[in-house]
């Protein structure tokens, strides 16, 4: 009975059907949704920490305000996305517990330190560009409440990319030292960016595509990123640290195979800044605990 129902449900989502919170869904689907969406929420929250470090060091008042606004957006995305997870059955407090204890994960790019203002520009431009490609593919997610939230998220990410590109252009057109800071940042971030969309698992073997949670395979997303952004990087006179990178005759980007074991190590808490960031998150949570107790009596 339940198998028949699951098969019908799978057929429904594969045909483009959309599921609402109160609809019946298979347990596997619910578990996969929670894990995936929770990791997305975690990433929004952890993603502000590298940027937070630069609020007090932003070069102008305008940049400081823009960066603060971006951080506000990302925290807002986190709250929207955690709400989707809550309605699927996992409370926000447990998401925060599991994030801090290392039981749940966050995106690889947020496990790295930022060394200069060049990193801030490159993150806002290229990391957000990579993220918007994944997020646009979620606009067609079979789980409708998540797809609806993505509309707002994608709309706000488009400001971030522009803010990042503008920051990079200001440095590129500045002094040779400023240009060099951007070049160093691009070189530093290239490996994490190539890791960003995950291993090139074929779309028809990807369980997230199977359940139509994602509508695009990992390699498709990476190809789209390379297609859109490599030309934008090279036209500025910047160099990318991969001699094999190029488009072949079939129009497919070729590149040096990234070290996938390194990606696994990074996202399981062994990245260069993983533990420091988690410790900071734990500290912040303890420090503001009294606020949530005061505001939400039921949480006390």
């Amino acid at each position: 009975m339940s198998d028949v129902r699951t098969a019908e449900f799978l057929e429904f989502v594969q045909a483009g059907g959309q599921v609402e919170t109160d609809d019946w869904m298979s347990e596997e689907y619910r578990k996969r949704l929670i894990k995936f969406i929770e990791m997305h929420g975690n990433s929004e929250l952890m993603g502000v920490l590298p940027e937070r470090d630069w609020i007090l060091r932003a070069p102008t008042l305008q940049r400081k305000l823009a960066l603060t606004a971006k951080i506000q957006d990302e925290v807002g995305h986190c709250q929207l996305i955690y709400r989707v997870v809550e309605d699927l059955g996992k409370p926000r407090a447990r998401c925060l517990d599991d994030l801090i204890s290392g039981k749940s994960k966050f995106h690889n790019v947020f496990h790295y330190p930022t060394k200069s203002w060049g990193d801030v520009g490159v993150i806002a431009w290229l990391v957000d560009a990579a993220a918007i490609i994944s997020q646009k593919a979620l606009l067609k997610c079979s789980y409708a409440p998540y797809a609806r939230v993505m509309k707002k998220v994608c709309w706000e990410e488009s400001f971030h990319i522009l803010h990042g590109r503008d920051t990079v252009l200001a440095m590129i057109t500045g002094t040779p030292e400023q240009f060099e800071l951007v070049q160093e940042a691009v070189t530093r971030w290239w490996e994490p960016l190539m890791h960003f969309h995950g291993t090139p698992i074929p779309a028809d073997e990807d369980p997230m595509v199977h359940w139509r949670i994602k509508s695009q395979g990992n390699e498709d997303a990476r190809q789209q990123f390379l297609d859109g952004y490599v030309p934008q990087i090279l036209e500025l006179g910047l160099e990318l640290p991969d001699p094999k990178l190029g488009k072949n005759e079939a129009g497919v980007w070729e590149y040096t195979e990234p070290d996938w074991e390194k990606l696994t190590a990074v996202v399981t808490g062994h990245g260069p800044a993983s533990q420091e960031r988690l410790a900071f998150r734990a500290l912040s949570r303890a420090e503001v605990d009294w606020v949530s107790k005061a505001m939400l009596p039921e949480a006390a």
């Binding site: 506000q72 807002g76 709250q79 929207l80 709400r83 926000r92 609806r148 939230v149 707002k152 709309w155 505001m295 939400l296 009596p297």
Partner: peptide, 27 residues
């Protein structure tokens, strides 16, 4: 059109959060 949801303890906080989440760019 439905936009989303959030936690707030009372109307005053709901007012403030709704403005921040859904109208700070005049959208």
């Amino acid at each position: 059109v439905h936009g989303g949801s959030f936690h707030a303890p009372d109307r005053a906080f709901a007012d403030a959060y709704a403005r921040e989440f859904y109208a700070r760019r005049q959208e």
